[in-house]
Write a protein that binds this DNA or RNA. Sequence first.
DNA 1: CAATAATTGCACTTCCGTTGCATGAAACAA
DNA 2: TTGTTTCATGCAACGGAAGTGCAATTATTG
Lengths: 138, 138
Amino acid sequence: MTEIEKTLENKGVRPTAMRILIYKYLAEKEVAIALTDMENAFSKADRTTLYRTLKTFEEKRIVHQIDDGTNISKYALCEPGCNCEMEQDLHLHFHCDNCDETVCLTEHKIPHINLPDGYVAENANLVIKGICDKCSGQ
Amino acid sequence: MTEIEKTLENKGVRPTAMRILIYKYLAEKEVAIALTDMENAFSKADRTTLYRTLKTFEEKRIVHQIDDGTNISKYALCEPGCNCEMEQDLHLHFHCDNCDETVCLTEHKIPHINLPDGYVAENANLVIKGICDKCSGQ
DNA sequence: CAATAATTGCACTTCCGTTGCATGAAACAA
DNA sequence: TTGTTTCATGCAACGGAAGTGCAATTATTG
């Protein structure tokens, strides 16, 4: 049993061949992945399967969904031991307007915000837009 | 010539009857408005007109677009004298998971973030999700 | 092995954003 | 004023992405 299979089982997801492939794909990309990206990468697999796999992964905290302002949902693997919902694990994301890629900046946590009376914060999403290191480097 | 007409002209937008109505509608709501909301409010007007009016307003810095994570674009009037693009004018938004409304917290600016080398920030979007004052109050 | 449950694939729907083109209204020039 | 141009509006349609129902396949369990 491989590392990935163990990981999936620990999270309560049956490690099917398809899911292992999808997990590997997400692991080797360092950018957030949209459903369309997956469709292109797995032309043999059905869109629905990819869609539902991502939803399952999200539900089981294997990936987190990223909303980078493009109105296209993207996904990235959670860090080992991450609790995406906890305030201390909420990192920010960077979207490059040039190459259109979105990356997790896991080291950069979202600062705590004091809200007006009556507002109860449960989650937060911070996206910085601009030019990424690869595109600005040249 | 009314205040609204002056405002529109100052921003370089011809103050047509339709646009004045739309501006008024945005002004009297304190929440961010989606295109669908406008369709319901202006059942006589065409969707495209509302859509293009919002785009024109956005371009001329009369409204700013808000991406609250619902994958539905929303819009709200800019503060007088606001430069939506400037870092000091970037405020955060709050999305209530109960009533599904999104509001501008114009007093709460997005804190400055130090990015890794090579990353150039040009814009930022911070959305806090949770329960708003109206929904938590009771 | 049979019976059950979970996964995958196909077809289809819905919703939102967007565009092309024709019509109508307003501004402008003669 | 009339004619011309420019801009605004309305209608129709497209396209992408998210989501759902159901049948078929595969895995798990007894």
